[in-house]
């Protein structure tokens, strides 16, 4: 017998959207993991699988007029911020019709019209940009905010410290989201983050900060909600540190010698935001398995068609080499 339904923190429509986005990210990444092995996808790809609840839990609070800056591991943030999935896949394949005409690639997907100010291949490159976007938000006075996504490794970069302090000084609406997945490339966060407490560091800069379970959509959603509300109310920046894991290596092809042998296998059992979400929403009577199963098949079809389209699509024309740059010689 099911319990009487409790009141969900999000509307049913929002819950379905959140599930759809998390599932889309998961499927996008799982499929890329397979497709990369064909050798058709150029460059280096960093998969976000395992961390979906963070991007979606944060972006569920945002509209197109809010901003995010992302990282080298940016696919999840892009999807959660509403970037076109087909356009992303085309970009990752380096095609002319890609979101950035094939000029950016996996590490530089952007869609400024959606408030997505770019993935970023420089660790710590994004947070200063987010502070600037937050100055624009503040000056417009429209209660919009900017989000700086970053990893545990990025928390050790000087540019990030500067951005955090400046956000406090200027009292601008930036939320720093440090996705602590335990590793920066092949080095553990417990080694490289001296204090082992990124949220504590943020408090040291003078902003409220909390850590949360990154595999629990509802925990991220609540923590992000508190942080974002402060920004919208003109109370300055805040930080959240979701604790999470990545299911794959740092980049595709990483042999992961720094990880215990069955670590990812176990974590897929114990830290899976999709399983957690399903369990919670069905237990509470907010959604049914059938509703989510229907989304699962939709998403599979969407990703499959995105891959098929991208594989068949033409590359950019050589003439594109010197477009989008003010002058050339």
């Amino acid at each position: 017998m099911a319990h009487a339904p409790t009141t969900p923190p999000l509307s049913k429509e929002q819950l379905l959207k959140a599930y759809r986005q998390m599932k889309t990210i998961r499927e996008f990444e799982e499929r890329l993991h397979i497709e990369i092995q064909t050798g058709e996808i150029p460059g280096f790809t960093h998969l976000y699988a395992g961390q979906e609840a963070v991007a979606v839990g944060v972006c569920a609070h945002l509209s197109d007029s809010d901003y995010i800056v992302s990282t080298h591991r940016g696919h999840g943030h892009c999807i959660a911020k509403g970037c076109d999935v087909g356009g992303m896949m085309l970009e990752i394949y380096g095609r002319a019709a890609g979101l950035c005409k094939g000029k950016g690639g996996s590490m530089h997907i952007a869609d400024v019209t959606k408030g997505m100010l770019g993935a970023n291949a420089i660790v710590g490159g994004g947070p200063p940009l987010a502070v600037g976007a937050a100055i624009a938000c503040r000056n417009r006075g429209d209660k919009t905010v900017s989000i700086a996504f970053g990893g545990d490794g990025s928390a050790n970069q000087g540019t990030v410290f500067e951005a955090m302090n400046m956000a406090v000084v200027l009292k601008v609406p930036t939320v720093f989201v440090f996705e602590n997945n335990g590793y920066a490339e092949h080095t553990g966060a417990d080694y490289a983050v001296g204090s082992k407490d990124i949220a504590g560091r943020a408090r040291g800069f003078g902003m409220p900060a909390e850590s949360c379970d990154g595999a629990d959509f509802f925990a991220v959603y609540a923590a992000a909600g508190r942080a974002i509300a402060l920004g919208r109310e003109g109370k300055g920046p805040a930080t959240i540190e979701p604790r999470i894991t990545r299911y794959y290596g740092h980049f595709e092809g990483d042999p992961q010698l720094y990880r215990a042998k069955d670590e990812t296998k176990e974590l897929r059992e114990t830290m899976d935001c999709l399983k957690n979400f399903r369990a919670r929403v069905t237990r509470e009577g907010w959604l049914t398995n059938a509703e989510m199963d229907a989304i699962d098949s939709d998403v599979l079809a969407l990703i499959d068609s995105a891959v098929k389209t991208a594989r068949a699509a033409p590359p950019p024309n050589d003439a594109e080499l010197t477009t989008d740059v003010y002058a050339t010689y």
Binding site: E185, H186, T187, L257, Y258
Partner: peptide, 21 residues
């Protein structure tokens, strides 16, 4: 440098998990 050895703070106990990227 970053990951010149690699593996520090990792769960495998392998303290040369990288040897430079």
């Amino acid at each position: 440098g970053e990951d010149v050895s690699g593996g520090a703070g990792g769960t495998s106990g392998n303290r040369e998990a990288s040897g430079g990227i």
